[in-house]
């Protein structure tokens, strides 16, 4: 059974989709004859669109890295670096750890928050860093306690083409989802509320969950409520989501 791209791409990508459709047939033909030449992608474009109705992404980290680097692994406990990203949007720890092993990465392409409905794009060039064959993407979701949008250890295709990927929301499992105002510092309760969100997040909530889960998992979503000055949650109903939360289009050149 054939797979189809399912991403509702924007107009400027149509010609690239056409290229992919042509290439898909070419790839199938090559696969049948068993003569596909192995080569590593030298340059990729990564476009990320926030497809939520009311959830913001903190500065994104996009990295092409080696097989033995793992930014996060669902089911496993979060690293300290992942925790800092998921609780406060701080990607510096992950960036340093990846850079130390020769990864190629881009930080904060949207120059701040990526708004709901907005897109950003980076180009990663792995010419001088062979072996960086895996793509990972992370950014914290606001307003959440330790929610993040993530792609982990996605093998970058060697064949030129356009590859859509739908990204889910994860929970780092490091902080209780109390859904009330607090801190973005690792280990401190509550959710950070940077200025652009000040008017969108309520106050006076009594708290939702009191326990951190202890492992990275698919986020169960935020509860929210319709009370800006009380209730259980400081998060509003309009900041809920269902997966996926981001649409990514990788173009292998």
């Amino acid at each position: 059974m054939a797979e189809c791209p399912h991403g509702f791409l924007s107009a400027d990508k149509i010609h690239r989709v056409n290229l992919m459709k042509t290439l898909t047939k070419a790839v199938m033909a090559i696969a049948l004859t068993g003569t596909a030449a192995m080569s590593y992608a030298a340059e990729i474009d990564v476009e990320i669109t926030n497809v939520t109705t009311g959830t913001y992404f903190t500065p994104l980290l996009i990295a092409a890295h080696s097989d033995n680097q793992v930014v996060f692994e669902p089911g496993a406990a979060a690293t300290a670096e992942l925790q800092a990203m998921a609780e406060g949007g701080d990607i510096s720890g992950i960036a340093e750890a990846l850079s130390a092993t020769g990864a190629v990465l881009e930080e904060n392409p949207a120059a701040g928050l990526l708004m709901p409905g907005a897109s950003t794009m980076v180009t990663l060039n792995t010419d001088n860093a062979s072996g960086n064959d895996y793509l990972s993407i992370v950014a914290m979701l606001l307003p959440t306690n330790d929610g993040f949008v993530g792609l982990t250890h996605w093998e970058i295709p060697t064949e030129p083409g356009v590859y859509p990927i739908a990204l889910n929301a994860y929970d780092a499992g490091t902080e209780a989802n109390d859904e009330i105002r607090g801190s973005g510092a690792p280990g401190e309760a509550g959710l950070p509320v940077p200025p652009p969100l000040e008017d969108m997040v309520g106050m006076g909530g009594t708290g939702v969950s009191a326990e951190a889960e202890g492992f990275v998992h698919v986020h169960r979503g935020v509860l929210g409520d319709g009370d800006d000055e009380g209730g259980m949650s400081d998060i509003g109903f309009s900041q809920r989501w269902l997966n996926p939360v981001a649409q990514v289009v990788v173009t292998v050149k």
């Binding site: 509702f8 497809v51 939520t52 109705t53 009311g54 709901p116 409905g117 979503g221 509860l223 929210g224 409520d225 319709g226 209730g231 109903f237 309009s238 809920r240 989501w241 269902l242 997966n243 996926p244 939360v245």
Partner: peptide, 18 residues
């Protein structure tokens, strides 16, 4: 509303607190 097509956030319902 938001002005562009997005992934739906789901409905809340009265039982869900709305």
């Amino acid at each position: 509303d938001t002005g562009s097509v997005r992934v739906h956030p789901g409905v809340i319902s009265m039982a869900g607190g709305k």
